[in-house]
Nucleic acid binder design. Structure first.
Length: 586
DNA sequence: GTAGGGTTAG
């Protein structure tokens, strides 16, 4: 592509630039552009557009913008190329500004424009504008366009409006792998894992094609559900289909197996990878962290530092710090944090890392230090931090700081009933029963359980879900009878219900009944009924496990000689012979 | 000429 010294006209420039776009030949394209300037050639709109496209494709957004700004007339392609480049690089407000200017200039958007601009309308605030764009789309008859439709449904899904997303999806005249994947991952990203799985299975029956993005999305849902039987099926599909971007899928598989309780499978995949990204390391570190394997976290992080291909990032340090906290490696955790502050790996601590340090200090009994740490840190404390510290006060029986902390926490979140339970637990563990009763008074009437508790267990490829005091499960009678039988046995082994976990204004007998109806107990008991004696049982819960249920599970493991695994919102509890891997701190 | 979906976190 020698152009120097040649007399070039439109066709010549056009051909060469097109070639440069295809080959991403940045230098060559820049020389073509310079040649135009040097020879005082004034390119027509078409060629200027070609330049804009060239620069955006070569990720030279600034140069693209310069050409774009100098254009006397702009067409839909140049506008769209700019909007799309901004959207793809995460400059959402710039993309929206350009779109507004485009409308003002009188240029009609086409399907390409709508599909691009919607990418910049994700989130609770932007979706308002996205909905206005939606009505423009309806007016211009692009609603059924497959690219526009999938971008539209993705916008709704990522803004928390999953019903609207589903509506757009159902209204599409045809479906393809992208629109199907977008709606499945929409459910998965909102934590609606059962819905995601159900839809995936339905669409599969209806002949949907899957690619690596589809499987990655479904694996996210299966991780959430800890549905290991389904996960293994997907793993088989992946192995058979020789999909591209296998690293992404291996990362998802590492995550899925570890969240299903099978760490050794995760490690096997990790060890056999021919190429690893930072996400591969992070997924493995998170796995160890959630299982309370502190030593393994520290060891793997050392490997990561020793190899020079992948650099740790902010998520790596979250995994490492929370791994040290969950795994009883508090001192190492504090050292890692100090190393972050000193700039050792070039990752600056953010508020989440500070939150991990609060956890670490609290767990190791340094409650005062944690309190000071929160007061001095360069961020506003979050409710989660105060909550973690209040938990520490309960375990380490520090009622002075506990009351101070609870005051702030309840001020921040007066409606979160979980906070009152924590405070009630604290007073109860100090034997201050009058105060336990006062907490009930303190709890204002608006306090609600944010998210209803739900527990489930996977047996023979079937998920059995239980809610508190479940009256809907087909085998509820059998489950309730077994709960009573169990209760007698473990009471003989000195189990006493922890009534401070119930804040309802009822008598003690009622409180005990409410406790026995907690979903994790029902799921656990169901697992005992439906599996042979001696076999390990694994139960999942969508929230943090309650103090009484944790204790209940410990007694069950001891009295019935069962290994019990409980996966709650934050971590795994592996209970053997009445002893839990969390060391009774979570 | 310009376009849509994905993996790790707490």
């Amino acid at each position: 592509m020698a152009i120097q010294g040649l007399e070039i006209k439109f066709e010549g420039y056009d051909t060469i630039l097109n070639e440069c776009v295809n080959q991403k030949a940045i230098r060559e394209g820049q020389r073509v552009h310079s040649h135009m300037i040097k020879t005082h050639y004034h390119p027509p709109v078409y060629l200027r557009t070609r330049l804009v496209v060239f620069y955006t494709k070569c990720e030279c957004l600034g140069d693209a913008r310069k050409v774009f700004d100098k254009m006397p007339n702009r067409n839909v392609v140049s506008w769209t190329a700019m909007i799309s480049a901004c959207s793809q690089r995460g400059y959402a407000s710039e993309a929206l500004n350009l779109f507004r200017q485009m409308l003002r200039s009188g240029t009609e958007p086409n399907a390409f424009t709508f599909a691009s601009v919607l990418t910049s309308c994700k989130g609770a605030l932007q979706v308002e504008y996205g909905m206005q764009i939606h009505s423009l789309i309806v007016k211009s008859m692009f609603e059924s366009h497959i690219y526009v439709g999938s971008s539209l449904l993705d916008m709704y899904a990522k803004s928390g409006k999953i019903h609207e997303a589903r509506g757009v999806f159902e209204g599409l005249p045809e479906r393809d792998v992208v629109s199907c994947t977008a709606i499945i991952s929409g459910y998965a990203q909102m934590g609606l894992d059962e819905e995601a799985l159900e839809l995936f299975r339905r669409l599969q029956r209806e002949g949907m094609t899957c690619n690596y993005v589809t499987y990655a999305s479904v694996l996210t849902a299966l991780s959430g559900l800890a549905a290991v039987d389904h996960g293994k099926q997907v793993h088989n599909h992946v192995l058979r289909s020789e999909l591209p971007f296998y690293v992404v899928l291996q990362n998802s598989l590492i995550d899925m197996y570890s969240k299903c309780g099978n760490l050794s499978y995760s490690r096997r995949i990790f060890d056999n990878m021919s190429e690893r990204t930072v996400m591969s390391w992070n997924a493995m570190l998170v796995g160890y962290s959630k299982h309370g394997k502190g030593r393994e976290v520290v060891e793997l992080f050392k490997h990561l530092r020793d190899q020079n291909r992948v650099k740790p990032d902010t998520v790596t340090f979250l995994a490492v710090l929370s791994g040290c906290s969950h795994g009883g490696m508090e001192d190492r955790g504090l050292e890692f944090f100090d190393e972050m502050v000193s700039g050792k790996d070039g990752v600056e601590p953010e508020i989440e890392h500070y939150s991990c340090v609060v956890d670490i200090l609290g767990r190791s009994g340094k409650v005062e230090e944690a309190f000071e740490f929160i007061k001095q840190m360069p961020f506003e404390p979050t409710a989660a931090m105060w909550g973690s510290l209040l938990g520490a006060c309960r375990v380490h029986l520090n009622v002075d700081i506990g009351e101070l902390v609870a005051e702030r926490l309840i001020e921040m979140e007066p409606e979160n009933s979980g906070n009152y339970v924590l405070l009630s637990n604290l007073f109860a563990s100090m034997g201050r029963w009058e105060d336990v009763r006062n907490v009930r008074e303190l709890m204002n009437e608006k306090a609600v359980i944010k998210e209803p508790g739900r527990s489930w267990i996977e047996l023979n490829q079937t998920l059995h879900t239980f809610h508190a005091s479940d009256r809907t499960h087909p085998r509820k009678e059998e489950v309730f009878a077994k709960v009573k039988e169990l209760l007698e046995k473990i009471k003989q082994a000195a189990y006493t219900p922890d009534l401070s976990c119930v804040l309802h204004d009822v008598d003690e007998e009622q409180k005990e009944k409410i406790l026995l109806g907690h979903s994790e107990k029902l799921a656990l008991v169901f697992g005992l009924i439906d599996t042979p004696p001696g076999k390990p049982v694994q139960v999942m819960k969508n929230l943090r496990i309650c103090v009484d249920c944790h204790n209940f599970a410990k007694f069950v493991s001891k009295v019935y000689g069962r290994e019990v695994s409980l996966r709650d919102k934050n971590r795994f509890h592996h209970i053997i012979g009445g002893i839990c891997s969390c060391g009774d701190y979570w």
